[in-house]
Amino acid sequence: MISAFNLEKTYYDDGVETQALRNITFEIKEGEFVAIMGPSGSGKSTLLHILSFMDRQSGGSYAFSGEDINDFSDADLAHIRNSEMGFVFQSFNLLSRSTVYENVEMPLLYNHSILRGKRKEMVERAVFAVGLPEKLYVEAGKLSGGQKQRVAIARALVNNPNVIFADEPTGNLDSHSGAQVMEILEQLNQSGHTIILVTHETYTAEFADRIIKLLDGEIDSDIRVERKRRTKEDFFK
């Protein structure tokens, strides 16, 4: 599904060159739960941005579903991002004065193939999946941190994407809410969604069945781990 070969990313700032990523090569198959780990500045968020088309690589190649993304325009990439990908951010990125419904509906607004009547059904299903049906018409700003992240997950899965990118999804949450969020992501993975998770927390990464560790912009290790059925208690350890 995702195939990266010798990916590189170089930033230029006031003539100073910074190489954020180099020699990144891996493949991610459909249905995998991959955690990208590494210390701050290791390039994990940069890699996530490239994989999710929000940024372009400086070198190497990246194919999504077998197609080189360099062949696509920005508008094409926006369309693929809309129909094939879901996003969960550390800081939730909800529109606080809009309702849960309006927030979750947002990706569907940019998909012309979904009719208005169908949209409502999809939003309700996604909000139900994260356990917040009673909050459907509540302003997002009035929710707790955990609830906000669950709304963000509902928004990520509303268009039934193949892959969900989660950037430090538990970073702003207490351990209880963090556990709930990771459980939802685990369930989504079990129902067939590919999950690509960026985290610096080992216990969060252990929900994945593959951990790619980055160090100074390079892959330090890429290991498969046996996924255990975790309980909330494990999470709190």
């Binding site: 999710s52 920005d74 529109l95 947002m106």
Partner: peptide, 10 residues
């Protein structure tokens, strides 16, 4: 940024 991330075009 959020809208663009979720699929909005320019």
């Amino acid at each position: 940024g959020l809208r663009k991330a979720l699929g909005a075009t320019s």
